[in-house]
Amino acid sequence: MEIAARRFDCKHGDGNLEFLAEISVLSNLKHKNSVSIIGFCDEVDEMMIVTMYEATGSLGRYINSSNLTWKQRLRICVGLAHALSSIHYDEGRDYGIIHCNITSDPILLDENGEAKLFSFEFSIQQSVNYKDQVCPCEHTGIMGCVDPAIEKTGGVTHKLDIYSFDVVF
Rank of each mutant, 00 (worst) to 15 (best):
C135R: 10
G113C: 01
V25W: 02
L80N: 05
K131T: 03
C41W: 00
S65E: 02
G39F: 04
E2Y: 09
A83I: 08
E138Q: 12
S123Y: 00
S65D: 13
F120G: 02
V168K: 03
H82Q: 14
Q125F: 01
G144L: 07
I98E: 00
K159Q: 12
T140V: 15
G39T: 13
V50K: 01
F118P: 00
L80Y: 10
D90A: 12
G39A: 13
W70R: 12
S164F: 05
C137W: 06
N33M: 05
S85D: 15
C41Q: 07
I97Q: 00
K116G: 04
G79Y: 01
L26M: 13
H82K: 13
A83P: 07
L109W: 08
V78K: 09
L68E: 00
R6Y: 11
I98Y: 01
K32I: 12
L59M: 12
S164Y: 10
S164R: 10
I98Q: 00
G144R: 09
E114P: 01
V50L: 11
S36F: 13
W70G: 04
I102L: 07
S65N: 10
N67L: 13
S127M: 04
D161H: 06
F169A: 04
T153Y: 07
E43T: 12
G60C: 05
Y163D: 04
D90M: 04
C77G: 11
Q133S: 14
E43V: 07
D110Q: 06
L29D: 03
E111R: 13
G15Y: 05
